[in-house]
């Protein structure tokens, strides 16, 4: 790791202000993603602002739903009785991710802004537009089985690794932030992450210094909820594809650089399409670049199975 200055933030607003004032600053919460990347010299912040002890870990009822503090760990959220009862899709998604040790450390805010696990992003000897804008994308034409099938661009075919965000997408969650000027924003989960386009280095719509303080869950949706993740080994592995169902909502994971709300499929279902047809509508534009071609077929089956189970 390169040397960095370390400060412990005393409030969220102060952290945001400090981050905005110091270019090259990064928030450090659980550290499970940032330190991984710093050791590999993929991230090299000049300033590390430790937000780990900010009192942002509460999980509390809010407007008929639930407000999950950004510092609540994955374990805490998954263990919360209200989450388990009212938002099982979220608990399941969290429990399908990482390992118990990682979940005891990884925070809700950090989970949202974690970076891709694309092997070419991780190998600093390879060109990657995320690491070095304009360098090119080694994953295109590469060996990846995990690359995107939806929403990719010629600049980047990586996927977003979060399971939690897929559940949040299906739940229509809203991300609450504090901005460097001390204001607050509420960002619908589907507007938090960006698709790669020409600039895969811009991963979220957060502004410089803006800090996630909470995730707001609306009142629980009516109907079945569930999260299913497919992977090469039974645990502790990135997904090949995943699907979250929450009432009428459907979201996909491991298919794009953001959690993928399957609105086309939802609309088709509303219009009376059978599950398989709805899946096909959603995946009409999907492309797998060789190694990930199978993910189209796999995702189609996942959507279909989820809808059949839901009794659509």
């Amino acid at each position: 790791m390169r040397p960095f200055s370390y400060t412990r933030a005393s409030s969220a607003a102060e952290a945001a202000r400090a981050a905005a004032e110091q270019p090259g600053a990064r928030f450090l919460a659980g550290g499970t993603n940032l330190l991984d990347l710093m050791k590999l010299e993929i991230e090299h912040p000049a300033h590390v602002i430790d937000i780990g002890r900010l009192p942002l870990g509460d999980i509390a009822p809010a407007e008929g739903g639930l407000r999950i503090g950004a510092m609540a760990t994955a374990s805490e959220v998954a263990a919360d009785a209200r989450v388990r009862r009212d938002y099982p899709v979220l608990a399941q998604a969290l429990l399908a991710s990482g390992s118990p040790q990682l979940r005891n450390k990884a925070t809700t805010g950090g989970n949202l802004i974690q970076r891709t696990r694309c092997p070419y992003f991780y190998d600093t000897a390879k060109p990657c537009n995320k690491r070095e804008p304009g360098a090119g994308c080694a994953a295109l034409g590469g060996l990846g089985r995990m690359s995107a099938i939806l929403g990719w661009s010629e600049a980047c075919i990586a996927t977003h690794p979060s399971d939690m965000a897929v559940a949040l997408s299906a739940l229509d969650a809203v991300v609450e932030t504090v901005t460097p000027d001390g204001g607050a924003r509420a960002i619908p989960i589907d507007e938090l992450h960006r698709l790669p386009g020409e600039h895969p280095e811009h991963e979220t719509n957060l502004r410089p210094g803006e800090l996630i303080t909470a995730v707001i869950l609306p009142p629980p949706p009516k109907g079945r909820q569930g999260y299913r993740k497919v992977r090469d080994r039974a645990a502790y592995a990135g997904g090949l594809a995943s699907v979250a169902v929450a009432g009428d909502a459907l979201a996909l994971g491991c298919v794009a650089l953001k959690p993928w709300r399957a609105r086309r499929a939802e609309a088709a279902l509303k219009a009376g399409a059978p599950p398989l047809a709805a899946a096909d509508v959603e995946l009409a534009d999907a492309k797998g670049h060789g190694g990930a071609d199978f993910k189209i077929h796999l995702t189609r089956r996942l959507i279909t199975a989820a809808l059949l189970e839901r009794g659509a």
């Binding site: 370390y6 450090l28 550290g31 430790d50 040790q101 005891n104 450390k105």
Partner: peptide
Amino acid sequence: CTVLVNGLRINACLSLAVM
């Protein structure tokens, strides 16, 4: 590298001591 911090298991490799 698993150790218990304040009673909970974590990966000690993905934590700065200063945290």
